[in-house]
Design a protein around this nucleic acid. Structure first.
Length: 508
RNA sequence: GCCGCGUUGGUCAAUCGGUUAAGACGCCUCCCUUUCACGGAGGAAUGACGAGUUCGACUCUCGUACGUGGUACCA
């Protein structure tokens, strides 16, 4: 069977897009592209209580930023539209009813109070979470326990109901996971999950099966947290008569918090000072903004690169991959089973490497808006490109370019005079006075002439050039950091160089 | 509680029965640079535990421990 590979990313639009979500999307994308297939975005908005305004567009924006845009989705309808589950509401009901008719599902009329009462009464130390399953369903109010006339009457009276799957008894449900191999579950241990809610919306369980079938999904990737409900989905595929078309499942390992154990949450990011969302998320309900990798100064190339290496490994020593290289190298056999702790230091290392790989021109284009919003005036793009070239290797995040290059654009306001005064002498002062005269007489202002005149004069005055470089640096930068001093002088020009020198000389 | 999944240095990880158990991040030392980085050279640091299979086990099997996920009319 040479059918086209189709994978999907199916998030629910309830808030910011988590690292783990992006990685699931990334792996689905890489797998699809590796096999020349399609990657679909399906919005799982079946819980109307959790719907958050703007979250869907935000997800689309995040994927676009990462460079893993879906081939089909609500924003780009293909032949399986609509891609929003709320808009497919009516389709699900017919399948739920089909299941009732074939005896694999049933109506349940229990109110939430009754369910709660059942759980409360059955709860014991040995069984802290009683389930709605074969052992109890005949004691509940449903079309299995009720007479047919009673059920019909309730339905005619428009009594609210849900449709639940009737899980089989004495059966081992097994399936093959692409990452974990054969997974077995005892059907008796799985409860009769709700398929169709009282509001007519499907639950995830029904919707994921129906949509994966209708959208011809061939490989379904999702987080490990779905493993326990997989048997329900397997039975659904079977009961609906679609078993031959069931996608291959892959349950991805979790991304864990760096300290301790457990799933990485937004709270961990806040606590430990790093983002968890791909891009800034503005919560319309609380008005809060949560920082994203993009706004912190990450490159999308670095972001997907680091995510790909969290749970997957090529087997070779190479760690830096472009998206195309990831597509070429990706394989499910090399995806890990165990969860990976997120390491922000390593994440920053990836970004640093990617910044160094970026061309000066491309880098400058990304840096320009950052510098201008922080108040720097950039009149000349070629100057910016030169500046970027000079400071690039010391910037880990795009935002670092501001403090690493500000002295190329503006004169410093504060000076670390102590650093000069510690070893200051009259001879050194005379040196700078004489050197200013020489610099002012230079007809051409260029790196090599500046450096040569500096060294020649130092030799002439019998002072070690190194002893003079630190004071010179403080005059130009204000502090003990930055690129080579003669490069700075070259960049800021004769007038500015001399002015900065005179200003500090006057302070000593 | 029950069920599922997992477990190689601090972290990411290679190894698909035989190696001195790679490499990267981070950390430490030194060199380069009289700034800060980059770069270079070194260093410390790993198979949860117990059985079994085998000539031989990090690799296979079982058990234990630990961790984690699930146990909703949320996904």
């Amino acid at each position: 069977m040479n059918q086209e590979v189709r994978t999907r990313f199916a998030p629910s639009p309830t808030g910011g897009l988590h690292l783990g979500g992006v990685r699931t999307a990334l792996f689905s994308y890489l797998f699809a592209k590796k096999h020349k297939g399609s990657f679909v975005l399906r919005v799982e908005d079946t819980d109307q209580n959790r719907y958050v305004e703007g979250a869907e567009q935000y997800i689309i924006d995040c994927l676009a930023w990462c460079g893993i845009s879906p081939d089909e989705g609500p924003h780009k309808p293909g032949e399986y539209a609509p891609y929003r589950q709320s808009e497919r509401k009516l389709m699900y009901k017919q399948y739920a009813l089909q299941l009732v008719e074939s005896g694999h599902a049933y109506y349940a009329f229990d109110t939430s109070e009754e369910l709660e009462k059942m759980r409360e009464e059955l709860k014991s130390e040995k069984n802290p979470s009683p389930q709605y399953d074969a052992s109890h369903r005949m004691h509940m109010k449903n079309s299995l326990s009720l007479l047919k006339e009673e059920t019909d009457k309730l339905l005619q009276e428009n009594t609210p109901y849900v449709i639940r799957i009737k899980m089989p008894q004495n059966e081992i449900i097994s399936f093959n996971d692409m990452i974990r191999g054969e997974i077995k579950n005892e059907a008796d241990l799985v409860d009769d999950k709700v398929l169709l809610k009282a509001d007519g919306m499907p639950t995830y369980h029904l919707a994921v099966v129906v949509d994966d079938y209708l959208m011809k999904i061939t490989h379904a990737f999702r987080g490990e947290e779905w493993l326990p409900s997989a048997p329900v989905h397997i039975k659904l595929w079977e009961y609906l008569g679609w078993k031959e078309s069931m996608p291959q499942w892959a349950h991805l390992p979790l991304i864990l918090k760096p300290d301790g154990n457990g799933k990485l949450s937004k709270r961990d990011g806040d606590r430990l000072g790093f983002p968890v969302f791909a891009m800034d998320w503005h919560d319309p309900k609380t008005g809060d903004t949560t920082k994203g990798f993009k706004e912190l100064g990450f490159l999308p190339e670095a972001f997907i690169n680091l995510l790909a290496l969290l749970g997957w490994h090529s087997g070779e020593e190479k760690e830096l991959f472009t998206k195309e290289e990831l597509i070429a190298a990706f394989s499910m056999e090399r995806v890990h089973k165990g969860g990976a702790k997120f390491d922000f230091d390593k994440a920053k290392w990836f970004n640093h490497e990617w910044i160094k790989k970026l061309s000066d021109e491309d880098c400058a284009a990304l840096v320009k808006p950052i510098l201008t919003t922080k108040g720097l005036k950039i009149e000349d793009d070629s100057f910016l490109i030169k500046a970027v070239h000079l400071v690039k290797e010391r910037c880990v995040l795009l935002n670092d370019f501001y403090e690493q290059s500000i002295y190329l654009f503006e004169s410093p306001f504060t000076f670390d005079l102590e650093a000069i005064q510690a070893k200051w002498t009259d001879e050194k002062k005379l040196f700078f006075i004489d050197w200013i005269n020489i610099l002012e007489s230079l007809s051409v202002w260029q790196f090599s002439d500046i450096e040569t005149s500096f060294k020649n004069l130092a030799t002439e005055k019998n002072i070690k050039p190194g002893e003079l470089q630190l004071p010179f640096r403080i005059m130009l930068v204000g502090a003990k950091h930055g690129i080579g001093v003669f490069h700075i002088a070259d960049m800021i020009g004769k007038e500015d160089t001399v002015n900065r020198m005179k200003k500090v000389l006057g302070m000593l």
